[in-house]
Computed example of a mutant assay.
Amino acid sequence: MHILFCNWRDTRNPEGGGSEVYVEKMAAGLIDRGHRVTIACARHAGAPDDEVVDGIRFVRCGSKLDIYLTTAARLLLRRYGRVDLVVDVQNGLPFFTRLVTRRRVVVLVHHVHREQWPVVYPGLTGRVGWWIESFVAPRLYSRSRYVTVSEASQYELTELGVDRERITVVHNGNSPAPRVTVKRSASPRLCVLGRLVPHKQVEHAIDALVAVRRRYPDAELDIVGSGWWDEELRAYARAAGVSNAVIFHGFVDDVRKHELLAHAWVMVLPSLKEGWGLVVGEAGAHRTPTVAYSTAGGTTESIDHKESGVLVDDHAALIASVCELIADDPWRTLLGEGALAKSHSFSWASSQEQFAHVLET
């Protein structure tokens, strides 16, 4: 089959994250099974409009604001050639592919954005976005099969009216960590990995650093990733009096990312919502445990509470748990071993097989 993924970004995009990794891993698995795959996504600096990477064709057009309509129009006009199946990746908004093709459409949802709309788009824009996601999309794709990455997201989709029997859960996998020579930092070091956007709530990690530094004044925080909330976070660190202890690394390559994860004592994942939390497994590969919010959804499956990391209910508990882990070496070591074991329990090969089975049947 020729399979078209409609996704707003790709992994080379500076704003790309775990959901883009998932899409491209699934695409690679389909290539290995003999299918043709095209990924339609938004343009960004430094990437050509049309290229083939590892057998996957990337077609980039439009911006992150008009990518949805642009992609739908190109599909209607058959600009991608003959397409046998469409994977409509719904990151809040669908691509409305059901309106422009008679081919089968599978909807891929990482998580439901109920809590994020008012944070990222306050006012009318956010309300319209949530109406499209919660009311329009479930009805538009009422005959389509869904794939999501966690049981938490599956449950939220059923709350929106998607029939449970049409939803298949295909978890994220974990890639073997590249070999790095970096050792654990001699002084306390926290790490945050992800896009710099409001709903990732990186400010909470900065708050945790402030608390840790009361006892360990040499503690530092590595912020890995880029995004449009960068300047606001820098201002927040300055206002908190820790700008000299917060290092903004921006977008880094895979090896550097794993060096920073191996260097850290604790990874903080203060995100408002996560479909899974791919970074949890990446940190776990270096025996670095994660503290995250239990209310984020997928984190309750990517983290085994008090076995491979810690799940907390609120901001105060997150700060307290980070401080406790930093101060308690045996507890942190125990969770680190659990995080390593947990990271080995999910593989991309298994996820690719499950995903391909959904599309092929």
Rank of each mutant, 00 (worst) to 15 (best):
Leu77Ala: 13
Ala205Asp: 06
Leu140His: 11
Thr333Leu: 13
Leu76Met: 08
Pro270Thr: 01
His249Cys: 08
Arg164Leu: 13
Lys342Met: 05
Asp49Gly: 15
Gly161Arg: 10
Pro14Cys: 04
Thr71Phe: 02
Asp163Pro: 15
Leu75Ile: 07
Met267Gly: 15
His204Phe: 13
Asp163Leu: 15
Leu272Thr: 02
Thr11Met: 11
His171Gly: 13
Arg33Lys: 11
Gly92Val: 06
Val246Thr: 02
Ala317Ser: 11
Tyr141Met: 05
Pro198Asp: 02
Ser187Asn: 14
Trp229Cys: 08
Ala72Phe: 01
Ile247Gln: 10
His258Ser: 04
Ser347Cys: 12
Asn172Ala: 04
Gly241Thr: 09
Cys6Leu: 14
Gly34Asn: 01
Thr168Ile: 07
Ala28Pro: 09
Ser351Met: 04
Arg127Cys: 06
Ala28His: 14
Val266Leu: 03
His286Tyr: 06
Ala327Asn: 12
Val53Glu: 09
Leu260Ala: 04
His286Asn: 08
Tyr155Trp: 14
Gly338Cys: 02
Val37Asp: 01
Arg184Ile: 01
Ala292His: 01
Asp222His: 14
Leu190Tyr: 07
Val268Glu: 12
Trp276Gly: 10
Ser243Thr: 03
Lys183Tyr: 14
Met267Trp: 02
Leu69Gly: 13
Leu334Lys: 15
Glu220Val: 13
His35Phe: 10
Asp10Gln: 10
Glu337Pro: 00
Arg179Glu: 15
Val358Arg: 09
Thr300His: 11
Glu353Pro: 05
Cys6Glu: 12
Arg195Asp: 04
Gly17Gln: 10
Lys64Thr: 14
Lys64Arg: 12
Gly227Trp: 10
Arg74Ile: 08
His305Thr: 08
Ala264Val: 02
Val279Gln: 07
Thr71Val: 12
Ile326Ser: 12
Ile132Lys: 05
Asp222Phe: 02
Gly62Gln: 02
Ser345Met: 06
Glu231Cys: 05
Pro122Lys: 07
Arg82Ser: 10
Leu124Asn: 11
Cys61Val: 10
Arg179Phe: 13
Arg189Met: 07
Ile326Tyr: 13
Arg12Phe: 09
Glu337Ala: 10
Leu190Arg: 04
Ala235Val: 08
Thr158Glu: 15
Ser144Tyr: 06
Glu203Asp: 07
Gly336His: 15
Ile326Gln: 10
Ala137Phe: 00
Arg9Met: 05
Val210Asn: 08
Asp230Ser: 13
Thr70Glu: 14
Tyr216Phe: 13
Asn13Tyr: 13
Phe251Gly: 03
Ala42Ile: 00
Gly250Met: 11
Ala177Thr: 01
Arg78Thr: 02
Lys64Ser: 15
Arg215Thr: 11
Ser144Pro: 02
Pro122Asn: 09
Phe135Gly: 14
Ser150Gln: 05
Gly309Cys: 04
Arg143Asn: 11
Val106Leu: 11
Arg214Met: 11
Lys200His: 10
Val106Asp: 07
Gly173Lys: 01
Gly81Asn: 05
Arg9Leu: 06
Glu274Cys: 05
Glu324Pro: 07
Glu51Pro: 05
Phe251Thr: 04
Cys323Val: 14
Asp50Gly: 01
Lys306Thr: 11
Val202Ala: 04
Ala235Asp: 15
Pro178Asn: 00
Val197Phe: 04
Phe58Trp: 13
Gly55His: 03
Leu340Ile: 05
Glu115Leu: 08
Ala235Arg: 15
Thr125Gly: 13
Arg33Trp: 06
Leu209Glu: 03
Asn91Trp: 09
Arg213Lys: 14
